[in-house]
């Protein structure tokens, strides 16, 4: 296989505090994204999934301290100058956020904003007309009817789904090699979500854009991603092919998460809720971060943190007592 597009090694993000150990929100995160691959990071609030995604584009809050290595096509992102980062954003790596309203300037026309995003990285220095044509083509690509006309609309004239699609159009305007989508469908209705997922799938198939999808919704991962990374309390706790991880999970957290989601294709049995709450990153916790909530925790789980270790082909789990995949599925 070819060289990875994005390679993250031992990524750490922490926030220093006065007179206290700093708060670590991401620790020891390592993974690769191959060209054209769709990888999902799934986790709850505070799992560090968004911080991980944001550190790729250096969009972390100023007070954050970053450690580890993030290489994009072999180049170290944390070492880039501000100018190099600006060149990279939008052109090679772009991002779609959760809220399509605040991502647009409300007083500028949608088409002009997309046009500006193109012009910013345009080596060919297209003229106005060529730019307008390109914008219309992009809006058509993301499924907006009557694109030349709609390009003249203002953001408030678009529905939520249309704004999310327009935002996606802007993100892919320069055919980036990697698209980072942070909860792209969370604010959307389910029928619109389905369209946006199809759009992302088509983009990947037609232009070979690799996608890093950040979400709390397991079903969205199941729909779009071939590989899934499960994060909990700032750690990667399971990483593997979606088919395996979501049907025969090896980490108790992944298993519990799947058990706690009501399913539309099954009538109501009682849900298996995960007891307690995720740990507070400001309070140090020894051992596996999940052990206080884990039904199978042993003494050593509370003493020493396990490493992310391989458990089958391209599948890793951070657990002292990984579940037997088959048994878990049957349980």
């Amino acid at each position: 296989m070819s060289a990875p597009l994005l390679s993250i090694r031992e990524l750490g993000v922490s926030f220093p505090r006065k007179e206290a150990p700093s708060t670590t929100v991401v620790e020891g995160v390592s993974f690769d994204i191959m060209p054209g691959e769709i990888v999902g990071i799934v986790g709850e609030s505070g799992s560090g999934k968004s911080m991980t995604a944001r550190s790729v584009l250096r969009l972390l809050p100023k007070s954050a301290e970053l450690s580890g290595s993030i290489r994009f096509r072999g180049r170290e992102i944390p070492e880039m100058t501000d100018e190099e980062i600006r060149d990279m954003r939008g052109a090679l790596v772009s991002m779609v956020f959760q809220d399509p309203m605040t991502s647009f300037n409300p007083v500028l026309r949608i088409g002009d904003q997309i046009g500006e995003a193109i012009a910013l990285h345009d080596r060919a220095r297209r003229g106005r007309r060529a730019l307008r044509d390109r914008v219309a083509k992009l809006l058509a690509l993301v499924g907006i009817a009557d694109p030349a006309e709609r390009a003249r609309s203002y953001p408030h004239e678009f529905s939520g789904g249309m704004r999310q699609r327009a935002l996606t159009a802007m993100a892919v305007a320069n055919s980036p090699a990697l698209l980072i989508a942070d909860e792209p469908t969370t604010a959307l209705d389910v029928t619109v979500q389905d369209q946006v997922l199809s759009l992302l799938r088509e983009l990947n198939e037609n232009s070979g854009t690799a996608i890093l999808l950040i979400t709390h919704n397991i079903a969205v991962v199941a729909s779009l991603c071939r590989r899934v990374i499960v994060m909990y309390a700032g750690r990667v706790i399971e990483d593997g092919p979606t088919d395996e991880v979501l049907t025969a999970p090896r980490h108790p957290y992944t298993w519990s998460l799947l058990q706690s989601v009501p399913r539309i294709d099954q009538a109501g049995t009682r849900l298996t809720a995960i007891k307690g709450q995720p740990p507070d990153p400001a309070t140090p916790l020894a051992g596996c971060k999940f052990h206080p909530r884990c039904p199978w925790a042993e003494q050593r789980c509370g003493e020493q943190e396990p490493a992310l270790s391989p458990i089958g082909e391209a599948h890793g789990v951070r657990c002292w007592l990984p579940m037997n995949g088959i048994a878990a599925a049957a349980q």
Partner: peptide, 15 residues
């Protein structure tokens, strides 16, 4: 019918 069709499922095979 449209609503129910649009909901993705957590099981990759069902999805």
């Amino acid at each position: 019918q449209l609503l129910l069709r649009s909901v993705p499922m957590p099981d990759p095979r069902a999805e």
